[in-house]
Design a protein around this nucleic acid. Structure first.
Lengths: 231, 231
DNA sequence: TTGCGTTTTTGATATCGGTCAAGGTCTGGG
DNA sequence: CCCAGACCTTGACCGATATCAAAAACGCAA
């Protein structure tokens, strides 16, 4: 098999519009790479390897201040693209939250390929616009929502996001799921401290809105209440 | 002259790569529109007119909660694109901050044109990626910076942004500029209240970091201090 | 199982920024 | 010029969330 064969299958969503010969060509310029949980994929201002497509797992994109405050500015799920094609360097660090498999492209190869395949660029543009919309609605959360609204919004988003990737055949948001985030990472995503996150989780549990069977497991008991809290 | 002739000239930055015939074609599908300060351009969930290119002036993109809290999620300056091509509806409202001139495209026309002109799509993709980067660094500000860091970062960003559009020939960040935002709008941009914004401005003035000749005018006296505060 | 390090929870306290209220300043129209 | 309304500033107070500290729960390896 050619390298990164799995990518090709998973990439169909992105590359629909490419014909088989083009898929093989894309196939040939990518390399599969495994990343274990907690390991970084791209360091800040490193521009040697830059574009990747997530096959399996979840990764975080973060920016930090010099004094160590961290903000998660994006989360990449399977089939998402990571990186910054076309000459710019990305301003975010990428770290795997779970063990992950990605398909990595050298930037030059990817850029050349994209320019020669407008359909791929069109797909990329649609995805980037969708990501921009998601990021903007997250700005609303960061700037204007209080702690309980943030937590409720987060749990609902997780419920939606993790529904697709489980492939259990069930349609719609997941009722029970496993968080790919530690409490600290939830805090970094929502612009809160770990203590506030913990207290809000405890409150939701005490109010009977969610069950927390273990640290990473969440079961949504009262979805309506969460929706009301999220605002 | 064909309609929207000004657009063509101003659009060169976006459309470089298009030949003259293509420029004329783009020219023919856009219409110039004036928007006075405070007037909306696209309402939330309205998808009749959707893509626009800013020729002159500054516009804000906002999202709001039902109970009236507002967050500015983006600011569009001359040559920026607004809207959401390719079938999706934008989740943000667009309101002019200053009197503005834009070139408006019906979504269908624009989509068709973009698909037939890969170079335009490529430019759009580059711009969208850059906007995503800017938005992500703003998330850091909203989630992790305190009030004085927010104000300092804001003033530096304004100084950079307004330098280009003034066309006075001076290179580099502007030392003195006119804010396109009211105090309330600065608050909506930074995730603060108007009172906190006002107090921080006063503090910077008292500390000799900036001069505030009038409500909208800012002169940066001590840029180093601002940089230190912004972190 | 035990023990140790990490993560999470819980509690006490402090503080930044929000809220409420009042007064001041700018601006445009009569 | 004067007035009215919008916008901005200032002050007093309060509360949500951060901070600091310690205990509890978990997970992994010996």
């Amino acid at each position: 098999m050619t390298p990164c064969d799995t990518c090709v299958v998973r990439n169909r969503a992105i590359c629909s519009g490419l014909d088989d010969a083009e898929l093989v060509a894309l196939n040939n310029i990518g390399r599969r790479r495994n990343v274990t949980a907690g390991e970084p994929l791209i360091w800040e201002d490193d521009d040697s390897l830059l574009v990747a497509n997530v096959i399996e797992g979840v990764l975080k994109l973060t920016t930090s201040t010099e004094d160590g405050r961290e903000q998660i500015v994006g989360v990449a799920y399977p089939s998402d693209f990571i990186g910054r094609p076309f000459g710019q360097t990305s301003s975010a660090s990428v770290v795997a939250l779970t063990d992950a498999r990605v398909c990595v492209f050298s930037r030059n190869d990817f850029d050349r390929f994209a320019r020669e395949h407008p359909e791929l660029e069109h797909k990329l543009l649609e995805r980037t616009l969708a990501e921009l919309d998601r990021t903007r609605s997250w700005m609303m959360l960061l700037g204007r929502k209080n702690a309980s609204e943030k937590i409720a919004t987060f749990l609902l988003e997780m419920s939606d996001r993790l529904a697709d990737s489980s492939c259990t055949g069930a349609i719609g948001p997941a009722k029970r799921f496993s968080l790919p985030f530690s409490r600290q990472q939830v805090a970094d995503l929502l612009g809160l401290t770990i203590e506030t996150v913990s207290r809000q989780f405890t409150k939701l549990k005490n109010d009977g809105v969610v069950e927390l069977p273990s640290r990473r497991e969440v079961e949504i008991v009262n979805r309506g209440a969460l929706l009301a809290l999220a605002g």
